[in-house]
């Protein structure tokens, strides 16, 4: 906020100091992880930073342990994570854009109930659902191994996407609500069909909204562990880290490197999408 300019800067410094102190553990913990990935030993004990790129080289070569021959394909794992994230982002964006438009602009029967249902669903314990979702998965899983793998991708995207949809629809509805009706009316008066109006007028206007929804859905898909480990047959970065933490042979700095790799998109978003991150959340949360 733009405060009065003549006040002493002491109180401002005090606030900054307080927030910084509160943030120290978080900053420390994250930076130590990133640092460790470039170090021969974990530096989480604040000692012995001996820089090396070996962890990253080993990670990309899939050498899980310093000795031994356990190998993984980290590229494939990353690709799996990306598929899930992009799938969730695509699905959520399409569904919520269409549904958001319908809820904002069309007065159909049961509209109100759909909206209430969406909000209540959002508050619904995911864990109660995942059990039923899993049973459905068990019952529909194809037998053919290749098909099974494909199906598990398909299913995890649907299931994880479904979890994001209620809020995203609300968010999209908010963006559509913000567009004056006059734009649309003038389009219709000029003789365009509703579909054309939607494509030519509404879509460009809600682009920022679509971007925000896509970004959040991507983050949700990218960060997920529960759905991925429950449904997906292949490994993602999340399950890779999960399963290698306690194992005897894994070299800890290498896991740190995997974690840093996994964190990379988050950092990229921090750098390029600050406004969307800060505003999008608030728009969605206010409903």
């Amino acid at each position: 906020m733009r405060d009065i300019e003549t006040k002493s800067r002491k109180s401002e410094l005090l606030i900054i100091l307080t927030i910084v102190i509160a943030s120290v553990p978080m900053i420390l913990a994250f930076s130590l992880l990133v640092l460790s990935s470039f170090s021969e030993e974990m530096v989480t004990n604040l000692k012995s930073f001996r820089p090396t790129l070996e962890n990253w080289i080993n990670l990309f070569q899939g050498k899980m342990a310093i000795t031994g021959s356990i190998r993984v394909n980290i590229f494939e794992i990353t690709l799996n994570t990306l598929i899930v994230a992009l799938g969730v982002a695509g699905l959520v964006t399409i569904v919520s854009t269409l549904a958001g438009y319908a809820l904002s602009r069309m007065d159909f029967r049961g509209r109100k109930h759909v909206m209430i249902a969406l909000l209540v669903l959002h508050a619904f314990p995911g864990v109660a659902l995942i059990v039923g979702v899993y049973l459905l998965y068990k019952l529909t899983l194809p037998q053919d191994p290749d098909l099974m793998r494909f199906y598990s991708f398909f299913y995890v995207i649907l299931a994880r996407g479904a979890l994001e949809i209620p809020m995203s629809v609300w968010l999209m509805k908010g963006f559509f609500d913000a567009i004056p009706w006059e734009f649309e009316w003038s389009g219709i008066i000029d003789g365009a069909s509703r579909i054309t109006v939607w494509r030519k007028i509404m879509l460009p206007l809600v682009k920022p909204g679509i971007l925000a929804v896509a970004l959040f859905a991507f983050i949700a898909g990218w960060q997920d562990i529960i759905y991925v480990r429950t449904f997906l047959i292949d490994q993602t970065l999340a399950t890779f880290i999960e399963s290698n933490i306690e194992s005897e042979f894994s070299h800890m700095p290498l896991i740190a490197a995997a974690g840093t790799l996994y964190l990379l998109p988050t950092i990229v978003f921090f750098l390029i999408a600050q406004r969307i991150l800060l505003q999008g959340y608030s728009g969605g949360l206010k409903g």
């Binding site: 992880l33 974990m42 004990n45 399950t239 880290i241 988050t266 800060l278």
Partner: peptide, 28 residues
């Protein structure tokens, strides 16, 4: 900065605190 815990991958976020509170002297 304070959005970081929410949007960081869950596994990474947990990993970070795993090392922070680790029971051995490796823990920060």
């Amino acid at each position: 900065l304070w959005l970081l815990p929410r949007i960081a991958p869950i596994a990474v976020y947990s990993l970070v605190w795993y090392y922070f509170f680790h029971e051995t002297s490796i823990g920060t």
